[in-house]
Design a protein around this nucleic acid. Structure first.
Lengths: 225, 225
DNA sequence: CGTTTTAGATAGTAATACTATTTTAAATAG
DNA sequence: CTATTTAAAATAGTATTACTATCTAAAACG
């Protein structure tokens, strides 16, 4: 078991939470609480109560809860990119590379790689429900200028490059990959909450196979033309 | 020019806003204000000030701003379904039907059909940025039980049926269509705000052609296999 | 024409999202 | 070792938000 830490964009925090115990508690407890309460009902006050500190102390680390959310989600995408690299390392055939990516993406996270202080499964859930909220805001352009969405873009770029290897003439690699990534999170959510929007059945253990088939089908058929 | 009104789910409002002048003002001003402020910063108090009324009066119509948002967005999808029916009426060939749908979906709304009290272009913008927020909440299941998401589901179902006509053996028609609808809103948003996630260039007038090509490519290639 | 109903206004409250200031603790300098 | 600086964290606020309970005025009805 390897313990990973990532260096995240410094604009995200006022004080690096990885360096102190309070900071680490903020990270790990906020993951749990955003999962259980949902982002809207999650507040710094409730968080502070849970970790036996105060609201103002949390504000020393993060300007507001929106930045904390982006911090957590950036962590997820950074971690995913790391795992993608690991997975496709030494695989030469681009189609095989793309398949490996898809397999990793549709896999449920297991507790075999440990991000310091964070429950990976919970973080994956948060990404599913809260990711869109990071950028569907009025401040998207200024947040973007600060580089807050770079980790997600990096993942998209990496997979789009593989798509282009498969078919250098395909004109929409980034659109296709960002759409596939959207589909990934949304289809699992739909299966659970709005089943008529999906053909994938929710199954606490293994909805993943069908999801893989769906994504593989639409990616490869679209790319190869 | 036809003036349309739609009967929406009664669970959405406490008092039908279509029946009174205040109600109509609430609808039309809230569309403008959600567009300009974004949903997060939009409040009933600000709205009431704008229309020269009071917060409490707005609360007589809508339980909270979340329901008002769903009301507006349901209105959009209901209207879209109506236009889809209109568009594919008398077209027999299913591939042609799907193409007609796509054309309509990627078209910018023009002011040729008028929803009472609502600016259609503005409403379309709101759907782009705020739609996801209607269902990515902790109350999704109870909202869904009340039928609040039926208009969107109806659109998805209608297009999925066409997909099945083209290829009755395709196993993921609903997933494919809900993914395409997501792509539709998101690609336009990406083009404007996060361009590296898309290959479609933002152009105030006509980003639509490329978007059409992208969607057509990935739909038809996936369906036909 | 009086009474019920209902629309809308007034005046609150608890919680949220912060800030400014003070206290406490740790680090370094003499 | 103390004395001073620096920084972390707690206390105590404020403006705004998201509501609710109550009241008044006008329309609808018997």
């Amino acid at each position: 078991m390897t313990i990973l830490t990532f260096k995240l964009n410094e604009n995200l925090f006022l004080k690096d939470p990885q360096n102190t115990e309070l900071g680490q508690n903020i990270i790990s407890k906020s993951v749990e609480m955003i999962e259980s309460l949902g982002f809207e009902l999650f507040t710094f006050k409730k968080l502070a109560e849970e970790i036996g500190s105060t609201e103002a102390s949390v504000y020393r680390y993060f300007e507001n809860k929106h930045r904390l959310l982006i911090y957590l989600i950036d962590w997820y995408w950074t971690w995913l990119e790391y795992r993608l690299d690991f997975e496709i390392n030494n695989v030469i055939d681009p189609e095989e590379r793309l398949r490996k990516c898809l397999k990793l993406l549709t896999q449920d996270v297991k507790a075999n790689t440990q991000i310091a202080f964070v429950k990976e499964e919970t973080l994956q859930h948060i990404v599913m429900t809260e990711f869109e909220k990071t950028y569907l805001t009025k401040q998207v352009d200024s947040d973007n200028k600060e580089g807050l969405f770079l980790p997600y873009k990096a993942v998209c770029k990496k997979i789009a490059a593989i798509v282009l290897q498969i078919n250098p003439k395909y004109p929409f690699p980034h659109s296709l990959v960002s759409t596939a990534l959207l589909a990934l999170t949304h289809q699992i959510y739909y299966a659970q909450h709005l089943p008529s929007l999906s053909d994938i059945k929710y199954d606490a253990k293994k909805n993943n196979k069908k999801l893989y088939e769906f994504l593989e089908g639409f990616l490869f058929n679209t790319i190869r033309k």
